[in-house]
């Protein structure tokens, strides 16, 4: 092995810091769980559902990355927990509850629609309703005044004398 290899490997083991999203501090521990195709209970469907549930859980040491996306060791371990629980026949709700129990509601990338959190779900809808109402009123008001409005076209921003002289000067200049 070249020196670089040993230094790199040693350094990675010693200093592995879970500071940023892409920390791969599990990198040198070998393989915790090779994705073995021969695994009897593990099916493509289980893998699919593991990924789906993983996408709704936050990787605890990353910045806004889901368990399914992150390559951090803890995220991969959580992924294994999800898979194991699914293979034991637990439901998605039970798995979610398990992680909320362990980490608090913070672990859910999509907050539960209950209590105060209802605002974050209802807020956009209410805002669009209110905005839509204001816009509709404005458009209807315009239609009401249709006739008088058409007789009198939108007043133009008139040019002041000074502006006209300035334009003339600028044109002469160019």
């Amino acid at each position: 092995m070249p020196r670089a290899w040993r230094c790199g490997a040693l350094a990675m083991v010693l200093f592995a810091a879970p500071a940023v999203a892409q920390t791969v501090d599990g990198a040198l521990d070998g393989i915790e769980r090779p994705a073995a195709p021969g695994d009897p209970v593990r099916t493509a469907e289980i893998d699919q559902r593991t990924a789906e549930i993983g996408a709704t859980l936050r990787c605890p040491i990353c910045r806004q990355q889901s368990v399914a996306e992150s390559s951090a060791r803890i995220a991969r371990e959580m992924q294994d927990v999800i898979r194991t629980m699914l293979m034991e026949g637990r439901t998605a709700e039970e798995i979610e509850a398990y992680f909320v129990e362990a980490y608090g509601p913070w672990i859910l990338l999509k907050p539960r629609a209950e209590g105060m959190n209802l605002i974050v779900y209802a807020g956009p809808g209410l805002a669009f309703l209110l905005g839509g109402f204001l816009v509709a009123r404005r458009i209807r008001r315009g239609r009401g005044r249709d006739d008088e409005e058409r007789a009198e076209p939108a007043a133009p921003d008139h040019l002041r004398k000074a502006d006209r002289r300035w334009i003339e000067a600028a044109l002469r200049e160019s």
């Binding site: 936050r58 608090g104 913070w106 859910l108 959190n117 974050v120």
Partner: peptide
């Protein structure tokens, strides 16, 4: 802003992420 609001008002930490 929602996680900040919740934390300021109730002290709870929640996440609002990509699925939302």
């Amino acid at each position: 802003m929602w996680p900040l609001v919740v934390e300021a008002l109730r002290g709870d930490r929640i996440s609002v992420g990509p699925p939302y």
